[in-house]
Design a binder for these strands. Structure first.
Lengths: 129, 129
DNA sequence: ATAACCCTTACCCTAACTGGAAGGTCAAGC
DNA sequence: GCTTGACCTTCCAGTTAGGGTAAGGGTTAT
């Protein structure tokens, strides 16, 4: 299977697939005589796994970790769960941060007339009142 | 005022201050005879303005835009408000994305025993069931 | 033979810095 | 006068997760 077919099958771009191979995240594709990469079902499974993990917000490093656990039959589910819980904590922190920003911005924006006059509480706030 | 004092006064690192100057975000500091940067109150105001805007989640490009409006006496508050509202929309989108990730992860994690057995619904899900 | 695609590697670009190297400056202490 | 340590300077490289583009070669159909 050519890389463009692998791309179709996984939803990842060809560029991304090559990149994942180049950093050692997924196992390298075998090569045909003309040098083209050749993908089989095992490769596709790996790539889909990483793609799903990325959609859940895992970093490439975490994806590698999870992929390793996935392919290790004597893994402990506790190790997987630990990665997921750490990710949840990160996400929760980010959400709290973003909500604080949004609340501040909404407050400021609601005080701003938004007309063609120069007076603006948003700028006043940024300038430190 | 040396850059370390400016750093103290603004909460930005010296490295960051030099960076902001290098990309033309803030006006360049004047130099003393020995080549050291020399900051006055106007510089400090600019840096604090950017620092506050960064805390509200504005990109450096947006910070430059806001700083320009701040320093233009014939600005329209509508222009400032537009930048703020666009930022709020971005943040809201991000929050929705992150919440979806977190909810999925929480569901998966709650199904995972987290013991020393290999069976793990998190990995099963990433593998596409 | 030529067009229209596919593939390859290799390099530069992004945001917003951070770290480090190599070297100049300054104030204090001996 | 000299050394030490804390400053300061510039420049280069690295971070994440790829995207863009170029230059070149392979494949397929007309």
């Amino acid at each position: 299977m050519n890389i463009s077919k692998a791309s179709e099958a996984t939803g990842l771009t060809a560029k991304t697939i090559r990149y994942y191979e180049s950093i050692g995240l997924v196992s390298p594709a075998s090569r045909k005589d003309n040098g083209y990469r050749d993908y089989d079902n095992q490769h596709i499974r790996e790539l889909k796994f990483v793609s799903h993990a990325r959609e859940l917000g895992f970093s490439l490093e975490e994806c590698g970790e999870l992929l390793g656990l996935y392919q290790k039959s004597d893994r402990k589910s506790a190790d997987v769960k630990a990665v997921a819980l750490a990710r949840i904590d990160d996400i929760d922190q980010k959400i709290v941060q973003l909500q604080a920003m949004r609340d501040s911005l909404k407050t400021l924006a609601s005080c701003c007339h938004g007309d063609d006059q120069p007076g603006c509480p948003i700028l006043d706030n940024l300038a430190g009142e």
